[in-house]
Structures are given as structure tokens and as C-alpha cells.
Nucleic acid binder design. Structure first.
Lengths: 109, 109
DNA sequence: AGAATATGCAACCAGGAGGTTGCCGATATG
DNA sequence: CATATCGGCAACCTCCTGGTTGCATATTCT
């Protein structure tokens, strides 16, 4: 019996934070290491403020961490949230996979 | 060398589709097997139409599949999209993990 | 000190997302 | 056939989101 609720709703903010191309781009950039906000905004067709807002969202989802270094803000990744999301996805996907597999097998009889 | 762009922007719709508690709930329900739209909407504090809209989004993201059986629509999960998302997350997380690890080691010297 | 740089805060705006209601066509069921 | 059920379509509403601009504040550089 597969009764378990596959994904806790707590993950919604994380997925929502990932559900924006700009944010994915930011995450991509941060993959190489911490950056300041202006550095992050530099290549993008966006205002620095827009980036700052995105960072607020990402910080809220636990994807990113921000610390002060003099007058600039060092933004760095926090893989924990991602790892958690991945694990839940993996679990849920496996469950569904087996369920669908079972149904498929039933249907084929 | 980690040449980053770790995640293709094509994933954004998938994550966006997952970034809503209601949708996560729907996915949870579908985990037990295909359901009709009214069945899906039954326990929820939502109109059938609202659920239908969510299903449109999810279908667009490839999370769900819909087929007609008489007058009712059978909605079923498509784990492929989820598996893909999981794989990308896993890859990205691993990359970042090693990067952060490296940085941390540098910082500790 | 004075200029330049990096960030933060607030107001504002357009568009999309989530939701509702009302209606209509198609399929089952009495 | 009459009626109830299931689903799709469309209009409408409200609120959040992504974005902008303008200004204030704190740090660094000369």
C-alpha cells in the first residue's frame, strides 16, 4: 500500500523559486562561486533591483544565502534545499513509477 | 572545470508547475492511480474548473496526461518529467556541492 | 572631505495566475 | 425521451509577481 503523501507542501516555495528562467540563470552563475549582487546582475538584461528581488525569493526558499562584506553583499548557494528537493522528487518519482508500472501490468492482462 | 549552465531553462515550467501546493496535492492524489477531474476536485476546497486549470498547467509541463473515457477524462501521471527534473537537480546539486566544498577548503587555509 | 560604488527601500505599473460563476455540448441513466 | 452528470469554454475579478525608477544610506577610494 502506497499511502504516503509523496511530497510535503513545504517544498512548494523551493520549486516555485526554481520555476523562473531568470532565477535558474542566477543559480547557474552562482555555481562557480559566491558573487556580489551587481556582479550577478551585470550580464543580465535586468536591473540590479530586479535581481535583488529574485534573491529575496530565493533566500526565502533557502536556495541562497547572503552575507555582508563591507559595502557589498556576498551571495552564495545553499545546496541543502536543492538536495532535499531532489530527494523528495526521487522518492515520489520512484513511487509513481512503481504504481504506474503495476497499473500498466494489470492493463496488459 | 565546471563550465556551468547547470540547468536548462526548459525545466522552468516543470518546477513552476510543482511550485504550487494545490498542484502538489493533486499530484499526491494521482499517485494512487488515474482519476477523473471531478474525482480529483472532490475533496478539495476548489471548483472543478480551478482543478481543470491546474491540470492544463501540469499537462503543459508534461507532468500529467489526459485521455477520454466516455464522458469522463482520465488523468494520469507521467513520471518522465519528474525523473528528468530529479536528474538535473541531482547533477546541479553535485556540482555545487563540490564547488562549495572546494571553496570551503580554500577558506579554511 | 568629496566622489564614486554597492546596497536597500518604497512607490508604482502591467500582466499573469488562481479562482469564481454561468453556460453549453456530450454522454450515461431512469 | 428526459434528466442528471462530466467536461470544456469564456468572461470576469483580485492579488501576486516581475520589472521599473527614484532616492537614501553606507562604504571605499583619492
Amino acid at each position: 500500500m502506497v499511502t504516503s503523501p509523496p511530497m510535503s507542501p513545504d517544498l512548494a516555495p523551493v520549486f516555485a523559486a526554481l520555476g523562473d528562467p531568470t532565477r535558474l540563470a542566477l543559480i547557474g552563475r552562482l555555481g562557480a562561486g559566491p558573487l556580489s549582487i551587481t556582479e550577478l546582475a551585470d550580464g543580465l538584461p535586468l536591473t540590479r533591483q530586479a535581481v535583488a528581488k529574485h534573491l529575496t525569493v530565493m533566500r526565502g526558499a533557502g536556495l541562497v544565502e547572503q552575507s555582508r562584506a563591507g559595502r557589498e553583499a556576498r551571495v552564495s548557494l545553499r545546496p541543502e534545499a536543492l538536495l532535499a528537493a531532489r530527494d523528495h522528487l526521487a522518492l515520489a518519482a520512484a513511487q509513481w513509477d512503481s504504481t504506474l508500472d503495476r497499473l500498466k501490468r494489470l492493463a496488459e492482462d
